[in-house]
Computed example of a mutant assay.
Amino acid sequence: MPTTKSGSDAFAADRIMPAVNVEEGIELIKAQLASASVLPQKIWETQFAMASEILTFMGRRMQAQAEFCARLGHCTEFGEAVGVQQDFARGVGGAYADEAGKLSTLARKTMDAWTGASAQYVSNLTALQKKAA
């Protein structure tokens, strides 16, 4: 039959954190809370910049689609409708290529900002705060 340890050694001297460690623990928690206050702002800025660019692009594409439909509606011959569709298709490819470039640039700038902010933030931390981060 298995035996269980008594609960009397639950607070053995080797398991109790000395007072100095408690203070270090409190400092670690403070440092973690301080770093947490910086991150959400950067996260929101990044998300809003990307969302803004994507929504702006979607608006331009919807406008182009509306103009395409209007031009197509005015076509009186089949060949004219094919030409309108070809023009629209060429424009779509270019628009998406341009947008990919813009999003890539924005992502690179965002990463540079994150790297710079992180480096500056970490350089200002104490050794204890660096452990917390």
Rank of each mutant, 00 (worst) to 15 (best):
A10C: 03
M111P: 00
R60N: 11
A113Y: 04
D98L: 12
K130E: 13
T105V: 02
F48G: 08
F68K: 04
V82I: 10
T105S: 10
A64L: 03
R15D: 05
K30Q: 11
V22A: 07
A13M: 14
R61C: 02
A133C: 06
R90L: 09
F78D: 14
I54S: 03
G7L: 09
L106M: 08
C69I: 12
G83M: 05
Q41E: 10
W44A: 12
S52W: 13
T46E: 00
S6P: 08
D87M: 10
V22Y: 09
G116E: 06
K30W: 14
F78P: 05
R90I: 13
E77A: 04
S8M: 01
L72K: 02
S123P: 05
S104I: 07
L39Y: 03
T115M: 06
G25I: 00
T115W: 00
I29R: 02
D98A: 14
S118T: 15
L106N: 12
A31S: 13
H74K: 05
D112G: 02
S104Y: 05
L28S: 04
P18V: 04
Q65W: 01
F48P: 02
T126G: 08
A64H: 00
F88H: 15
K42D: 11
L125Q: 15
L103S: 09
K102P: 03
E80D: 12
A13W: 15
T105F: 01
A31D: 12
F68R: 04
V84E: 15
M1H: 11
Q129P: 02
V38W: 03
E67T: 08
K109C: 11
S6M: 05
F78K: 14
E80A: 14
H74T: 02
Q63L: 00
M50Q: 12
A119N: 04
V122G: 02
F88Y: 14
S118M: 09
L55C: 00
W44G: 12
W114C: 12
A13S: 13
F48I: 15
G101S: 06
R108K: 13
T56K: 07
A66R: 04
L39T: 06
K42H: 03
V82N: 06
A133L: 07
M1I: 08
A113C: 15
S35G: 15
T115A: 05
V20S: 05
N21A: 07
Q32G: 14
L125F: 13
T4V: 07
S104G: 11
